[in-house]
Simulated scan of single mutants.
Amino acid sequence: MSNIETFQGLIRQVTDFIGSQSLDKALQEKLNQQFPYNGEACQRIVETCRSGVEEGWMCQYEGGGVRYGRVIKPSAELHGYSVDVVDMNDLAGPHHRHPNGEIDLIMPISPEARFDGQPGGWLVYGPDSAHSPTVTQGRALVLYLLPEGKIEFTRQ
């Protein structure tokens, strides 16, 4: 089994749980309960992302100080979600809109790192939300689950 197949199996646990639930704060709470950041499932995802970045099959592109890459295109196996991973260190990324919402797994590399003010764990943005993704207080990896892979980069 390849690294990407193993990774997809880990993510499938999450997307099977999400199913057709609405992307909202209630889902954020459920994800943090079902897959707590320090729990086994979440830590397996974190370790796979860390090693994937080190091995070069994740975050293989760079622009504006952000390392990034789409690891998995939208697939029926993942309930239509795509998977992107970014590596950021004390900076704001490009402003963008989430037509269908966005589910983030925040993985601090620096112990105090925050993504959009949040520590390690799950963060959910609903449909039609927008932001400039920002990592403060160090370095973090962030995994993005995007319904249908949709994201629109915008000017702010």
Rank of each mutant, 00 (worst) to 15 (best):
L143P: 02
L141M: 12
V53N: 04
G39S: 04
G56M: 02
W122Q: 03
Q60W: 14
V46S: 09
G126F: 01
R44E: 13
M107F: 00
S129E: 07
R97F: 09
G39C: 06
L10R: 06
E54S: 15
Q13L: 15
M1W: 12
V86E: 08
M107K: 00
G63Q: 15
G65D: 07
I72E: 01
S2A: 09
P99G: 08
K25N: 10
D87T: 06
A113W: 05
G80Y: 04
I103P: 00
V66M: 03
Q60D: 13
K150Q: 15
I103K: 05
T48N: 10
S132V: 11
Q137P: 11
P99L: 05
P127G: 04
E54I: 13
V135G: 03
N89L: 11
R139W: 11
G138I: 07
M1A: 13
G52I: 00
R12M: 14
Q118M: 14
G65V: 09
G69S: 04
E5Q: 14
G117T: 06
L91N: 06
T48R: 11
L141A: 05
S2I: 11
Q43A: 03
K30N: 12
Q118V: 11
M58T: 02
E148K: 15
Q118L: 10
Q21L: 14
L145N: 00
Q21C: 09
E112P: 06
E47R: 12
G69V: 05
T134C: 06
S110E: 00
S2M: 10
N89V: 09
G117S: 03
G138S: 09
G93E: 00
A113N: 05
Q28N: 08
F7I: 07
S129N: 11
L123V: 10
G64A: 08
T136P: 04
E112Y: 11
D104K: 06
D128V: 08
G126S: 00
H131F: 02
F153G: 13
E5Y: 12
Q8M: 13
G117K: 08
